[in-house]
């Protein structure tokens, strides 16, 4: 599955790569935080694709980044 994701990304344009990563990450993030999922996904997509791939492969990594993103968003909205 990992190589499929990597090879799929390698054949896509930078714009398509971000969209694909967003489509893959969004349902995972939505399961963790339904309310802020759209903003969290948008925020995480500003990171390098290699980091986003790592998050797709590592639920622990994704969760910690989601927690960070939630903290930043709440600080912005306060």
């Amino acid at each position: 599955e990992k190589s499929l994701i990597a090879s799929t990304l390698a054949s896509a344009s930078p714009e398509e790569q971000k969209i694909m990563l967003g489509e893959w990450l969004f349902p995972l993030i939505q399961a963790m935080n339904p309310t802020l999922a759209s903003k969290i996904t948008g925020m995480l997509l500003e990171m390098d694709n290699s980091e986003l791939l790592h998050m797709l492969e590592s639920p622990e990594s994704l969760r910690s980044k989601v927690d960070e993103a939630v903290a930043v968003l709440q600080a912005c909205q306060a």
Partner: peptide, 22 residues
Amino acid sequence: GSSINWPPEFHPGVPWKGLQNI
């Protein structure tokens, strides 16, 4: 205060505004 436009929200199936910054 004023509304915050960051971060650009991602919605599946919808073009992502954040792409303008790449």
